[in-house]
Design a protein around this nucleic acid. Sequence first.
DNA 1: TTGTAGGCGTTATCAC
DNA 2: GTGATAACGCCTACAA
Lengths: 324, 324
Amino acid sequence: MSAPPRVTSVDVARRAGVSQSTVSLVLSGKAAGRISARTEEAVKAAAKELGYRPNVAARALRTGVARSVALVVPDITNPFFGRVLRGAQRAAQRAGYTVVLVDIGNDRAWEAASLQALLAGPADGLLLFEAELPPGATEHAIQIEMRPGKLPVVRLDVEAGVDCALDHLLELGHVRIGHVASNFEAPTFDLRRERMRDRLGGVPPTALAPFTFEGAARAAANLLDEGDVTAVFCDDDILAGGVYLAARERKIRIPEDLSVVGFDDLDFARVLAPPLTTVGVDAEGLGAAAFEALAKDLAGEDVAAEQVIPVTLCVRESTAPPVS
Amino acid sequence: MSAPPRVTSVDVARRAGVSQSTVSLVLSGKAAGRISARTEEAVKAAAKELGYRPNVAARALRTGVARSVALVVPDITNPFFGRVLRGAQRAAQRAGYTVVLVDIGNDRAWEAASLQALLAGPADGLLLFEAELPPGATEHAIQIEMRPGKLPVVRLDVEAGVDCALDHLLELGHVRIGHVASNFEAPTFDLRRERMRDRLGGVPPTALAPFTFEGAARAAANLLDEGDVTAVFCDDDILAGGVYLAARERKIRIPEDLSVVGFDDLDFARVLAPPLTTVGVDAEGLGAAAFEALAKDLAGEDVAAEQVIPVTLCVRESTAPPVS
DNA sequence: TTGTAGGCGTTATCAC
DNA sequence: GTGATAACGCCTACAA
């Protein structure tokens, strides 16, 4: 519609009968012991009256700080990342930051282009979920769910996650345990594979699955038909959903014929039939922790090279002792 | 780490042996017929060599536009909004815009604060999903899933959605149809209630449910126990998931004893047992359309007061003729 | 074809 | 206590 008639600090100054710099001083809280209480009040009143809001661009230009961070996620359509985003956003808001989202859409080819666009953006720092810092960028950045490297890392305790899932299955008496693994390349998934191998004393029967129910179902098919397993550990609840689909098709009963363990404890895990046993994870906390780390970094403080967020197993009804 | 030594257009100019304004001209593509090909090349080379990237804050200050829009959603944890966000983000990226997210978290109390923070932000315009323009804002804005008002609206064809769901149920022979409605206040839900009433010739047995599986299950309990219905239409797949939970508890079989229809066609609808019949919706398209409308508005073009996105029924296995 | 200069709205360093 | 004044990096008349 009409161009919004922007109110500047000069307008406020005129209105209050003071200079622009006085306005700036007052409104940025640096008036203590410098500006008289009377002027301070007058300025504040004038500002409110006119509906003054500082121009962020001007401030950013002057201070060199945009008070905004970018969060890069592989797939915002996955509720897990929604929760991470929410956590980061809440923390950011508390700190007066704004978060701009970059969704890779599970498409590594797109990643480069997206990050390029991002760097042109106004972000003071980057929150990189399973993404690398683009080449040539000297930005402040935190990596999420990556291995420790040059950048500080915030990640889930995946090892513990695999451990408790496996312990649970082993205790139930399973010995032939399969792995429905993500085919999306990321360190966290490598970590899970390694941990499985170490704990099981060898590479388990494995299916490599994409992050869709139908794709995962197709990938799991072989494992169910020929893998000769009584239980599967899935890298993610979505993959577990795929296993449910494949099992249903084959009239394989869960948990009687097959125990299933997921990862992430997405909401829908509870409405599956039977409810899914899965590794519960504080996604919001992960996002918030990542932001806090970045904020520290931006403030010039030291940040831990690695921060690990604990996980817990949610035992539900998709696991039981093997019959065979 | 170390402060990134920012490269400015002045550096590029010095390097290329030209003036700063020449650099600006060349790099913003306005060199046509003004700058010699040789200088143009030299400037571009220098820019690339130094890794020059324009300072957005400065540009925003100078031009008055930030090339960024804000998207306000009720709950980013709901995959539906994830898809909307993705659609908007893709469209925005193509247009060289960046999108900043504001997540209300299904908390109307928080909404005001969030929006306040937002207005201080650098957004050129607002994409408001089930949110009102904050008072005093003269911003450019598009509303999503709202009724036509002062602002242009992009919305789903909810009426058609209700119609095809009801037609399907009616054709199957159901006469006692219940409504599991959202307790989150929003025009789209009012619309659905009205349409139900009009089509059914009266207010159907209704349960008011929150957007969580367990909450919805509790809310649906009464309806199932005393509503005397053979089918329910749910405002959202999440609510339908709640109905599945409540039905399971009561040993009510779907679809034999109860037909269930959802709305949105979220991914998990396909992995429910039985797979959920639901109204399919182009969430990405909704987000993209909203952004396009906003972009038009920002460009000073006319934008339609209302744009309606079509929906289609996905018939799966949660609906069948009533037995009783 | 290119360069000079002014200003966008802030913040911050000085004088007064 | 308060007010000039100089940047911050970029765009864009206008001058050369």
